[in-house]
Amino acid sequence: MRVIAVWSIKGGVGKTTAAVNLAALAAREGARALLWDLDPQGGASFLLRVSPRRKASPRRLARRSVELRRMVRATDVPNLDLLPSDLTYRTLELELNARKSPSRRLAVKLTPLDGHYDWVVLDCAPSVTLVSEAVLHAADDLLVPVIPSALSLRTLEQTRRFIAQTRSKAVRVLPFLSMVDRRRRLHREGCERFAGGAEGFLRTIVPMSSIVERAAEARLPLFAVAPSSRATRAFASLWQEVREQSASPTD
């Protein structure tokens, strides 16, 4: 089981889009995948049309004795399960805080799922909180979408520093260019600067595309809406890279 967190301090950079589509791509290949929506906005849960089970709650989620498996729901994408979220999950922070070693809690909760899932993808809220710290302890890889702008690059630096401060063992940071609009000079420059994987960036560039909006409207993964569009192919190649970077969980 490999845990990939899609993570950024910055909002609206394409985290949820990447999380949903990468998890769906993993599932489509025949792996068992779990997407964990950790954002009370519930973007991933919305895109997959799943709301939390009635008996699920942030309190139970934080409790050590309650198995995550019991809160999981199957999505309409074969092999893909989801741990959904909604606004009530804003209290997860408080619930974690009320327990022992809160920053390790998510990692602890995930342990029993090993052997059941090949990939766990965490969709995180854009903030620096206890939950995001707990994510750092749970994840093997941190996938960071970066829109090529001065501000975004600064947050990437902040992200790296935050990780250095909080993290005991090394988590791999994998930034990639997201929502790139080649008509913009800054974006073109960003692409040149990070082309070919410079400064630890993944090579794939995810373009700005109306297909993404369309897929969000249809509440489907990109490949189900426009199988051969540029954006779909970009996510497929991003997934390929992520998979190659992670030691393959299957052998």
């Binding site: 489509r28 290949e29 025949g30 792996a31 068992r32 074969p78 092999n79 090949d118 393959s248 299957t250 052998d251």
Partner: peptide, 20 residues
Amino acid sequence: VTAPVAGTVRFASDLPAGPI
């Protein structure tokens, strides 16, 4: 769990990588 396959599957090594 389900996975797409191309070609014939004869031995375990022909099965798609992953849980199957």
